[in-house]
């Protein structure tokens, strides 16, 4: 069984890392639409997949967030990726199996996955 003592150990490790990391770079934000239509279309596993992928790759500078309605129900689940200094990229009809590629290509390597973007899917 998981014990609270394990949580203390995780805390202590995280503290060490917090001390050596320089926190002056602005975070990359991943924002998942979580209104009723987003949830119905599958936003929950998508958000958790982003968080898991970010944890797995130990990306320190990425925040996974949620928002209410983005206003385009038919394209849900919608995910916006905001890289500081770059234009916002909006992905549509995102599924958990698309997440790893968005994280690697876009968030790690800086190349948005054009074929998953809303502009591409609307065509």
């Amino acid at each position: 069984m998981k014990t609270l003592a394990e949580l203390e150990a995780i805390r202590d490790k995280a503290r060490e890392k917090m001390n050596i990391r320089n926190n002056n770079s602005e975070a990359i934000r991943v924002v998942v639409g979580m209104a009723t239509c987003g949830i119905a279309a599958g936003a929950r596993p998508v958000l958790n997949a982003f968080a898991e992928e970010v944890a797995k790759r130990r990306l320190e500078n990425v925040v996974v967030n949620q928002t209410g309605c983005i206003g385009m129900c038919q394209f849900e689940p919608i995910v916006e990726v905001l890289v500081p200094g770059h234009e916002k990229v909006t992905y549509a009809k995102v599924t958990p199996d698309k997440v790893a590629r968005i994280v690697v290509d876009h968030i790690v390597n800086g190349n948005p996955v054009m074929e998953y973007t809303i502009g591409h899917i609307m065509k």
């Binding site: 998981k2 609270l4 949580l7 203390e8 995780i10 805390r11 490790k13 503290r15």
Partner: peptide, 23 residues
């Protein structure tokens, strides 16, 4: 209760979240 233990370490720290989920 988790937050009491964590203190200044955020609950959404990736390693913490992984632990919370398995818990």
């Amino acid at each position: 209760k988790f937050k009491e233990i964590l203190g200044d370490v955020p609950l959404n720290n990736p390693d913490v979240s992984v632990w919370v989920e398995s818990y």
